[in-house]
């Protein structure tokens, strides 16, 4: 009998073992739901799949009786708009400040204690401040995403930049490069894929901040809708919405990974798999 650390699943095995937890959860849900519905056909806590499909039909493919909008798409557009704007601003800030801190000793001396402290401020704790300062509409939600994600991106990028081999920077200087040319041709191209990776890691927190802000004050958005229908215990809407948000996050993570693989072929160079 070989040791278990030396035994590997085949292609089919990988599919099977990967699908197993999903199947287990789905079956567990179906069983629990069936049990509860047998007791009380009007149970709202664990609705059957048919009820969820009907709910999606209602919110996604039938115009709302009051506004005439397709609610789920309006919510999705609103949330993605806020998220995209927040992450875009965060990324741009991180790029400028992070590379500055990593590369220029004076910028590092000036900003690194400040950023270190700032990154420890719990973003949710300043949400009321944001609502007071920026009002209850779009801006405060975007700012919460920015406040929540930027310090992490800055610190990560500053550390990666500072970790660059000293030899590369010296070499660039002996080739006659100015600081600006070093940033543009040596540092930036090598840091962009790192920034994209950091962005992928911060997608989770970004959604967390967005949904929190929407839950408290909004008129549309995925988080707003979930917290609105919670009042009627409408699990048949909440569960598909959660699945939809998960799918959106998963797809954006996948797209960012694809972006790295496509735009930075040197990352995989010499690793054999390309």
């Amino acid at each position: 009998m070989r040791r278990i650390i030396n035994r590997r699943p085949g292609r089919g095995g990988i599919l099977f073992w990967g699908a197993l937890p999903f199947l287990a959860v789905a079956m567990g849900y179906a069983a629990a739901s069936a049990l509860r519905l047998a007791d009380n056909p009007n149970d709202k806590l664990l609705p059957p799949l048919s009820a969820m499909i009907a709910a999606v039909q209602r919110v996604a493919f039938t115009p709302d009786a009051r506004t005439g909008d397709y609610l789920m798409w309006v919510d999705t557009a609103a949330s993605l708009h806020r998220l995209g704007l927040g992450l875009g601003v965060a990324t741009a800030l991180a790029l400028v400040i992070g590379i500055g801190m990593g590369l220029v000793p004076y910028v590092r001396a000036g900003l690194s204690p400040f950023v270190a402290i700032l990154s420890m401020v719990p973003p949710m704790a300043v949400l009321p401040v944001l609502f007071i300062v920026f009002g209850l509409d779009e801006l405060s939600k975007v700012v919460l995403v920015v406040v929540g994600v930027t310090p992490f991106l800055i610190r990560d990028l500053a550390m990666r930049t500072a970790e660059m081999p000293r030899e590369q920077l010296i070499k660039a200087q002996t080739l006659g490069a100015s600081t600006w040319q070093i940033v543009l041709r040596v540092v930036l191209p090598q840091m962009l894929p790192r920034l994209v990776d950091a962005l992928r890691l911060s997608l989770g927190p970004a959604w967390l901040f967005l949904i929190s802000a929407e839950a408290i004050a909004a008129t549309e958005g995925l988080g707003y809708r979930i917290f609105l229908v919670r009042r009627y215990m409408a699990m048949d809407v909440i569960l598909p919405y959660v699945a939809w948000i998960t799918l959106l996050a998963f797809v954006s993570d996948y797209l960012l990974r694809l972006f790295n693989a496509r735009c930075f072929p040197w990352l995989r160079a010499g690793k054999g798999s390309s």
Partner: peptide, 26 residues
């Protein structure tokens, strides 16, 4: 460091994100 003095280190002397040709024309 400046262009009147060229340097080769034991490691990390070339830029990993550029091809050989791009490294040289830099």
């Amino acid at each position: 460091p400046g262009p009147d003095r060229g340097v080769v280190f034991q490691r990390y002397s070339v830029f990993p994100h550029l091809t050989a040709l791009e490294n040289v024309i830099l």
